[in-house]
Simulated scan of single mutants.
Amino acid sequence: MSFELTGKLIVKEDTVNISDRFKKREFVIDVPNDRNPEWNDTIKFQTTQDRTELIEPFNLGDDILVAFNIKGNKWERDGKVNYFTNLEAWRIEKVGSGSSSTPGAAPLPDQPEALPPEEGEDDFPF
């Protein structure tokens, strides 16, 4: 199941190499709150692997539409259990322009294929 949100790009982090086989990049959009206009929602997304460059063409202040999936993970270490939820962006478009984050490229599929689990990666749950 995929979702979409539209908002103003307010944070664009650098790509972080978690390991030699896994990298991620985070960004944040400011989404108007329809129920209380005084309080906008700030929503953090992440992109991973070959999608870390999706946010690159966009500038802070741009209005963008983000297509994303919700990912949840359970992570156990030393007897402690943690649960993580990530909003995994897989398509980004500038609002009103109709252009995607990968100009000239074929459109991304509606549902990206799941990445295989990383073996031996115990420092991070994702």
Rank of each mutant, 00 (worst) to 15 (best):
T15F: 11
T48R: 05
K24C: 07
I18C: 07
A114F: 10
K80D: 15
V11K: 03
D110K: 08
P125S: 10
K44E: 12
G61P: 02
E53W: 05
N82Y: 15
D78Y: 13
G79E: 15
P116R: 08
E88N: 09
D123C: 11
E119P: 05
Q111G: 05
G72M: 13
L54Q: 02
G96C: 05
P57V: 00
V81G: 15
K24S: 07
T47C: 12
A89C: 06
R91F: 03
M1D: 11
G79F: 14
E93A: 08
S97G: 03
A105G: 08
F68I: 04
F68R: 01
K74H: 13
M1N: 09
R35F: 10
N69A: 12
Q49V: 04
P109D: 07
V11P: 03
I18L: 12
E38C: 10
P57I: 00
E13N: 08
K94A: 07
E119K: 14
F22D: 09
P117N: 14
L5Q: 09
F22I: 07
E76Q: 15
S99G: 06
N33K: 01
L9C: 03
N73P: 05
G96L: 02
D122N: 12
N86K: 12
E93F: 07
E76F: 15
T42Y: 10
A67H: 10
K12Q: 03
N40M: 06
V16E: 14
L54R: 02
I29M: 02
R25T: 10
